[in-house]
Simulated assay, not measured.
Amino acid sequence: MLAPIWSDAPKGFVPGSAVDREVTVGEEERSFRLYVPSEWSRPAPALFVFHGEGGTPDTIQNYAKLDPLAEDRGFVVIYPKGEGRNWNYDPGAPIVRSRGLASFSSRNGLNPDMDRRFDDVAMVRTIVEKLAAEGLIDASRVFATGISSGAMFCHRLAADASDVVAGVAPVSGAMTDVVANRFDPPQPVSLMAIIGEDDPLMPVQGGPIAGLLPQDRGRVAPADETIAAYLEANGISGEPCVERLPDRPEDDGTTTRVYAYPPGENGALVEIYRIEGAGHNWPGKPSNYHVEMVGKTSQDFDGSEAVMSFFERCPPKPGVPYGPELGGQ
């Protein structure tokens, strides 16, 4: 897509294109890819997209294909790079830094140079502060999605950065039991979760993460307990409206039900997509691995479209400075 000849975008940003940038977090240089919609004209809502274990900003950008949807809706999209191609989704879980396919065949999944924890929550805070101070994003409308370990990290952001994120949409990624045991965000965080009922890597009833793989990655809480935690945190007590989506195509072996709860405190939303027969995938996209390893991919709906539609409807965080007011530019 060609960028416009003129633009009101802050200096250094080219609407209609993606650029790679760096930010200093403590003593670390962290990198991220940034997509700015071509018709940017004012501080825009921001969407963080976190790749899964072994992924990169490039792989999740090409896989989820969120840029065209963000273009239509005026969102800025941020693709951070996880150190060691993974995220610190649980400060109590073992450190697993991806070594590509070696992660699937060896108990030694660690890169010696990466055998330490990185403060990924601080990275998100720093990126938001920087981009808001530069006038690019609206700090009251910051959202996060991701797949697998990137989705698990979204749950940690909801727990530890509820003052930053207005909503999260984890795809095929559960909340760890450690985060669940202390989940009490001081501010409401809207939730949209896409859950494959037959996910072999994130057991819906709780248990070891990717138990079929050699390394210990910690454990996840049951999905029902995670949903209940968000409902309580957001002050939601009503029953959900349940919709069964049409099967498209009819022979893909999955059935999707959407549970939409009444709005909670400050209008916080909770919507859950539970997919019978689906595994560890992003709905509407091709599977990254053999179905025997990760399960079936539902084609009942486009997960990316559902994520963007949800965030469009999410309320902003009340009392959060707008755009450059955050940094006093």
Rank of each mutant, 00 (worst) to 15 (best):
P4R: 04
W6G: 08
A9K: 08
K11I: 07
G12H: 10
P15R: 10
S17N: 06
R21I: 00
R21D: 00
E22N: 12
V23R: 02
V23P: 03
R30A: 04
R33E: 07
Y35F: 15
Y35P: 01
P37D: 11
H51C: 12
H51Y: 11
G54N: 06
T56H: 04
I60R: 00
K65D: 14
D67N: 15
R73E: 14
G74P: 07
Y79G: 05
K81F: 06
N86I: 00
N86E: 00
N88M: 12
P94M: 04
R97G: 01
G100Q: 02
A102K: 14
A102F: 13
F104G: 10
F104K: 08
S105T: 15
S105Y: 13
S105H: 10
S106G: 03
L110H: 07
P112D: 04
D115K: 13
R116S: 02
R117M: 03
F118M: 03
D119Q: 07
R125Q: 13
K130H: 02
I137L: 14
A139S: 15
V142S: 04
F143S: 09
A144K: 10
S148D: 11
S149R: 13
F153Y: 10
F153H: 10
A158F: 10
D160T: 07
A161K: 11
V164W: 02
V165H: 07
G167C: 06
A169C: 10
G173N: 11
M175R: 04
N181Y: 01
F183P: 01
D184K: 14
P186C: 00
P188G: 08
V189S: 03
L191M: 09
M192C: 06
I194E: 06
I194W: 01
D199V: 13
L201M: 14
M202G: 04
V204C: 05
Q205P: 02
Q205G: 15
G207F: 12
G207D: 05
G207Q: 12
G207H: 04
P208N: 11
A210L: 02
G211H: 10
Q215C: 10
R217Q: 15
A221K: 06
A221M: 12
A221L: 05
D224K: 14
E225K: 14
Y230M: 00
L231P: 07
S237Q: 14
E239Q: 14
C241P: 01
V242T: 10
L245G: 06
D247E: 14
R248H: 11
A260V: 12
A260K: 12
Y261F: 15
P262H: 12
P262K: 06
E265G: 00
N266C: 08
G267Q: 12
A268G: 09
L269G: 02
L269V: 02
V270N: 06
E271M: 08
Y273P: 06
Y273C: 05
R274H: 00
G277S: 07
Y289A: 14
H290C: 00
V291L: 05
E292W: 06
G295W: 01
K296Y: 02
S298Q: 05
Q299N: 13
D300F: 07
E305C: 01
M308D: 10
M308Q: 09
F311W: 10
P315K: 13
K317L: 15
P318F: 00
G319S: 08
P321A: 13
Y322G: 01
G323Q: 09
G327C: 12
G328C: 02
Q329W: 05
